[in-house]
Amino acid sequence: MTTQPITLDEAMAFTWYEADLLDSAQYDEWLTLWTADAHYVVPIEPGATDFENSLNYAYDDHTMREKRVSRLRSGLSISASPVPRTIRIQSRFRLLKSDADGCDLRCAQILTEFRRGRERNYTADVEFRLVRDDEKLKIAQKVVRLINSTEALTGIGYIL
């Protein structure tokens, strides 16, 4: 395992890849992008850091991520039949820290969903903790901080 710091270019290319997998519903590949103990988090309170001891919109370990994917595919969930189409744009990337252990990357994400004639938007700061694992990048944590997280949302039947 090499400990070469992750560059901004590498990190950007990787998170764009993750975004594309989600928008194109390639969930099997998406599930392999994570380290074994990684969490996908959508917190409620701005600035929250102790996600485990807080109520979140989503606090998914690997098992929950698998369940979320199954839900999108099963056809049993009426809100995910059909799954909303999404297109997300990520930009304003900033490498907050990068060293031998990995990197902290922050970016802006603007997502449009479309389903049953309705178009809705969700805007967020997305924070990635990325690590290098056997030459590949992996997500050690992904935190999606919605700009309106403390307001009423609508049903979000997909992965942000």
Binding site: V42, L55, N56, Y57, A58, Y59, M64, K67, R71, S77, I78, S79, A80, L153, T154, G155, I156, G157, L160
Partner: peptide, 16 residues
Amino acid sequence: EFFQGPMGFGSPDDAE
């Protein structure tokens, strides 16, 4: 979190 709220496994189906 599992059932309730906009990203739960229950509430969005109710809302739908």
